[in-house]
């Protein structure tokens, strides 16, 4: 076991760095730039039962220290992901990959998860009950403990692989939703998804995004992520994948001290396509600076 390695729900990761769903596609664009096998894993583009075209453009807006997106879960649907994308991923990534799943009903979640669960290369299901950019389903499942638990039960009934539940920060009490997910059988949690936000163009006097609202990500949300991972760590005993505004090795250490076992990197991949290899290279130096022998030992170290 290397000093960067961590164990996420029974699967050993060489390091805790996982590009987040939605910023990494199916890995192709990044595989042209570096060897994806240096990553802990990656979470591929959110998958739904049926194909989705996503929202109209503009889907992207900027803000100080971050960005808003309202892509709206554009994806070719689970059948095409399994037929076309997973075989392509197998050529460029040789470790268990994380399958991110969204749905609009309990049945859709279960059917999509069952299909992906049966794929050998899938290591974990990351069940997104927190997308802010779709008008039914999506985030609405993640804002109440009861509906979150219902999704987890539906998915756990069909899945053999570890189920991570991706939580929204757009709630009053994230610990309550986290606890409900754990009680319903979740094997782990991932947080935070993006923060519901809006920008308005003074020239047109209308929202910049065609969808009106979008999800805020980037360094602006890191302190929110740290706070929520810290709160959830106190409330549950299952592993947490922390994310939100991570852009350097120091941010990784901070989220792990808050309670994260692994760390997803999102928006930073869009502005610096080499950010993940840079973080992985920086980690040993930062560990030396803070006298950390192995990353696994600092998980939850701030409590």
């Amino acid at each position: 076991m290397g000093k960067l390695s961590v164990n996420l729900c029974g699967i050993e990761l060489d390091n805790p760095i996982i590009p987040a769903s939605g910023v990494f596609g199916y890995g192709r664009e990044f595989a042209a730039l570096y060897d994806l096998d240096i990553l802990g894993s990656f979470s591929f583009k959110g998958t739904t039962l049926h194909p989705r075209e996503g929202n109209p453009t503009p889907r992207i807006a900027e803000c100080p220290a971050g960005m808003l997106n309202a892509v709206g879960l554009q994806n070719p649907g689970v059948a095409a992901v399994i037929a076309r994308e997973l075989p392509e991923i197998a050529k460029i990534f040789h470790k268990p990959v994380m399958a991110n799943v969204s749905g609009f009903s309990l049945e859709e979640y279960a059917e999509t998860c069952a299909a992906l669960d049966a794929q050998d290369q899938v290591g974990w299901l990351e069940v997104n009950i927190s997308c802010p950019n779709v008008h039914q389903g999506g985030m609405s499942f993640g804002t109440e403990p009861e509906s979150a638990a219902a999704v987890v039960k539906a998915v756990k009934a069909v899945a053999k692989k570890p189920v991570l539940v991706k939580l929204t920060p757009n709630v009053t009490d994230i610990a309550a939703v986290a606890k409900a997910a754990e009680d319903a059988g979740a094997d782990g949690l991932s947080l935070i998804n993006t923060v519901l936000a809006m920008r308005i163009d003074p020239r047109t006097r209308r929202p910049v995004l065609a969808n009106g609202t979008g999800g805020l990500s980037g360094p602006a949300v890191l302190p929110i992520a740290v706070r929520m991972v810290y709160q959830v760590y106190e409330a549950v005993s299952i592993p947490i994948v922390g994310m939100g505004g991570v852009s350097c090795a120091r941010d990784v250490i901070e989220l792990m001290l808050a309670g994260a076992t692994a760390v997803e990197v999102g928006a930073a991949n869009l502005t610096d396509p080499f950010v993940c290899p840079k973080i992985i290279k920086e980690l040993p130096k930062i560990m030396e600076e803070y006298r950390i022998e192995s990353l696994a030992e600092i998980i939850g170290g701030a409590h």
């Binding site: 453009t57 992207i60 997106n69 991949n269």
Partner: peptide, 21 residues
Amino acid sequence: ERMGCGFGACMGCSIPTREGQ
């Protein structure tokens, strides 16, 4: 189009066409 990454990863600038998104 307004873009996120500019290199094809984020789907931020996808538009509908006769050949799909």
